[in-house]
Design a binder for these strands. Structure first.
Lengths: 163, 163
DNA sequence: CTTAACCTTGACGTACGCGTTAGATTAGGG
DNA sequence: CCCTAATCTAACGCGTACGTCAAGGTTAAG
């Protein structure tokens, strides 16, 4: 029996521990198909590969998958919308990378302003959803209050009946 | 020229003003196809009909459609999930209707408890989403703060350069 | 009674988000 | 070297949530 699964695939020295697709699938709760699909759609950057072609994911990739799942299942964003957010994050990373390096100040400021704009847009979307949710929560709380009082009046009727 | 569209279709005396499918579509922003589809899937109860077969919707129906749209587009529930919620609401209506009528007290209490349970379940779902959203909002706010400080440091560099 | 605007029920088409084989290749313990 | 679990690409399938004709019937103004 050749039960493979080198788990974290030997951190070569003190480098990152890379994960194969099966591990990532297990840890994130999505299928391997889904991971390849996200890659196809540009939600995950093409991971590095083993010589044989096996995908090697980083812990960052795992975190991104978890982020995608949250955005999708909890908040109902489409993959297209999530891709936009992810790309915005990429832009931010690039800005961070090219921070001290080349480039005129005005150019860097332009990029920062752009990133700020994108983030602000995401913020308004989220605030809209927050408002809607708080509205719904209030409605439900009201209903629960009604149920409580109805139940109490029922209990009262029972006591009256027993007397 | 026979330009129809009787709008609210003559409130026969002081009864409800019934709306045809076109009006409802216009007012809710969904297509007629969508309204028929929701009816097929049990999200809208089969509306009353004109003698010729034309659907006649009530204002309540309009409100329900708006509710469905909110649940779907803002919060990402599937139609199946929304159907469950709608059915829970129906149960509540039925309880309301059969309030003073028949039935033993224990039976009514059971129904109330069931409705309460369902509502509480919806509440926890919403609270989870709320928590996730607030988390995201905090993250975004933090990022915006970073951008602000970066921009300020850029401005400072500029001043230093000009001096 | 005519006619334009509105409605009806099919029935097929489509975009999204994966699921599911199928057939081949790779990794690594024995 | 062999064997098997794990992975690869390619391609078709499926459920959801409608869009989009097609072919007709209904309504109400003129």
């Amino acid at each position: 029996m050749a039960s493979r699964r080198t788990q974290t695939l030997e951190p070569e020295s003190q480098e990152q521990a890379y994960l194969q697709i099966g591990e990532v699938a297990e840890r994130t709760g999505v299928t391997q198909r889904t991971l390849r699909f996200y890659e196809e759609r540009g939600l995950l950057k093409p991971p590095s590969r083993l010589d044989g072609g096996f995908r090697l994911y980083s812990e960052d990739d795992v975190r991104r998958v978890e982020q995608i799942k949250r955005l999708q299942s909890l908040l109902g964003f489409t993959l297209a919308e999530i891709k936009e957010m992810v790309e915005a994050d990429e832009v931010k990373m690039q800005i961070r990378a090219s921070y001290r390096k080349d480039a005129a100040i005005s150019e860097r400021r332009a990029k920062l302003l752009r990133a700020q704009e994108v983030t602000a847009g995401q913020m308004t979307v989220i605030e809209q959803k927050l408002a809607a949710l708080q509205d719904m929560k209030a409605n439900l709380a009201e209903k629960l209050g009604h149920y409580d009082s109805w139940l109490e009046s029922l209990a009262e009727q029972e006591r009256a009946q027993r007397a």
